[in-house]
Amino acid sequence: MSQITPVFKREFLGYFRSPVAYVFLVVFLVASVGLAFFVGQFFRANQASLESYFVFHPWLFLFLIPAVGMRLWSEEKRSGTIELLFTLPLTTLEAVLGKFLAAWTFLALAILLSFPMAITVGYLGQPDWGVIASGYLGSILMAGAYLGVCSLTSALTKNQVVSFVLSVLACLVLVFLGWSVFNSALSAVLPVWAVDLVANFSFVTHFDSFTKGIIDPKDVAFFLSLTGFTLFLNVVALER
């Protein structure tokens, strides 16, 4: 497993070797903070919390994480470097984990860059820091699950556009399953237990409690096992 380190390092530093990383960080920050201020009415709500910031994350991630994840394997396939990578002495699992962890760290960095907002909230009022911390934790865990899906879809094609579209579609399904509008429509035709079951596979359902300061082991397990499962499929897809 020590072979993860060089792969991680190359991938992570790779983001900063091109303008892509800086563009992404700025877009992410502007979009997430902008939504919180203008749509989430961060100030008008008159609450010392970041709920209006976190609440948009499932929707924001829907587009921004495929943008990061789409190149993960597609680019290696297109440029032929995959042949180089997989004739170096490392296993497919080590390569998958190294690249995934690098992208995840990068996303965590993007999420944590909003920390000045938390400081502002702390300056203006008396927020519950536990709730803020659990929001960040939930957001980073959810980003991991999104990224797992995107890493998998990017391993299926050498075309980044195809990879992006596949990722968005797959994530869209996982978000929609728990969207309240969709669920109430569904409850008209399905019994309650069936609706709950469907909603149970959604990012939104599991993310909500984090934004309220509840760290439920079931939610943590959901995100981690979804991440693990997609990475497993990722290895299978590459070894095919």
């Binding site: 060089p6 790779g14 032929g80 470097t81 042949e83």
Partner: peptide, 22 residues
Amino acid sequence: PESAPAYGEMTVAEFLAFIAET
């Protein structure tokens, strides 16, 4: 490999250092 694929955004020394690490 045929047509010598390499990570284009890296410098020659960075790339070879990555190979050395692996």
